[in-house]
Amino acid sequence: MTPLLQVENIAKMYGARIGCANVSFDLYPGEVMGIVGESGSGKSTLLNCLAGHLQPDAGAVCFDTRTEGLRNTVTMSEPERRMLSRTDWAFVHQHARDGLRMNVSAGGNVGERLMAVNARHYGDIRAKAIDWLGRVEISADRIDDRPTVFSGGMQQRLQIARNLVTGPRLVFMDEPTGGLDVSVQARLLDLLRGLVREMGLSAIIVTHDLAVVRLLADRLMVMKDGHVIESGLTDQVLDDPQHAYTQLLVSSVLQV
């Protein structure tokens, strides 16, 4: 089986300071990987390097493209990379307003990715938008409302619909449940899990919330000072942590 994403020795420096270094891993189709660590551990830097938002200083991020097999996305041309991020990739931001167009209706937000890949039938676009709003539990009669009048949880669900409408194969998520109420978080987690399963998505989720990764991620990487210090099955890393820092991290949270 070919990995969907093959990451080799990714490194990113901020001047003399390490953003992340020596990160390598394979992600297979259908796998959800969590990346945990405290603020400044390099997990967001890593995610942005993987998603093409930051140019890494070294290393390769190879993605199994539909037409040409494994391609290094770090060295591919920008139009190709941007095309990937509109089609096979998705990025869910922590703050929905970073991932949504706040002055465009919910339907327009969901439809944008379709129109970006040349959907030109209004009726079809709208039908798809309604279908996706339904899947993320937003009622169809809100389709013409702008996200500014949505609650935080709804905005986040809209962001997810907007990202998944083109049927991506890899989703990057940066603290997708951060800043939401606990009950809203649970609903979102349930939704994400269902979508991951139904669509056979692979996902990389950056979070500092160990409860979130336990419920969502099959695998886990623990980062500290820009390095991956431990990785493995999520429950194994959380229940039998090997590294001193991971042990501290796990013992520091309230029982989950």
Binding site: V104, G108, G111, E112, R120, Y122, D144
Partner: peptide, 18 residues
């Protein structure tokens, strides 16, 4: 430069929806 014009149709979509 990258011919990414999906956004232009978003404007027309918004027109029709409103």
């Amino acid at each position: 430069s990258l011919e990414e014009y999906g956004l232009m149709h978003v404007k027309l979509y918004e027109d029709i929806s409103q």
